[in-house]
Amino acid sequence: MATQAHGEETGGLVFHPMDQFIVKPLFGDGPIHWYTPTNVTLWLMLAVLVIWLLFVAGTSGRALIPTRIQSMAELTYGMVHKMVEDVTGKDGLKYFPYVFTLFCFILFANLLGLLPKSFSTTSHIAVTAVLALAVFLGVTILGFIKNGAHFLELFWVKSAPLALRPVLAIIELISYFVRPVSHSIRLAGNVMAGHAVIKVFAAFAAIAAIAPISILAIVGMYGLEVLVAVIQAYVFTILTCVYLKDALHPAH
């Protein structure tokens, strides 16, 4: 409303860059309880459906010479598998299913969010914070279980001069606790920023004179957003792997 009032002042342009992120109940106007099916539910379940289609229905042929869809599933699997193995080593492969879950969920939530009229679940801090906190808590607990007190050596930089080590330890400790914040806000911010910018360009399309430029800008932004959707999924996953590596081998 406030934005609309603002828009009225600037002569007919209506900016609602954030309206696309509103959580609404799917049926009726009822209150949003924790169990209410909302548009969040719809798009989360669509992501689940797409993952099911790709990884279960697409590979049901178990073809030796893969079909196109099976090939995509195999490539995704191979990429994440190689990433986990390269970054965390052989003993990190135990956690591959969870990392693969994260990657698939973020990738498809991002990509589904790019459909027109859709809802980007990953643009919400609530969603990405849960993902990042799960990784953070899981990795920290795992580090203590696997290494005991040696896990704290992560903060005690052996290669630095002794005088510097306490300072470095404080910095490392802070950066360790900032991890979930940056991890979650990076994803949500990227997705939100791109969608909001597209919305702003779309609002400019109301003026006939600059509509072509606006549409071109939307096309360009959309291409960039597709790239960002994939890269953010990749980055989230590889950072998860890096944190996992820190928990498994804190010495280096």
Partner: peptide
Amino acid sequence: GNQIFWLLVALALIYLILS
């Protein structure tokens, strides 16, 4: 609460499907 609940449901489903 709504988002987190449905996110956890979706993640659990995806994890089950995948693993």
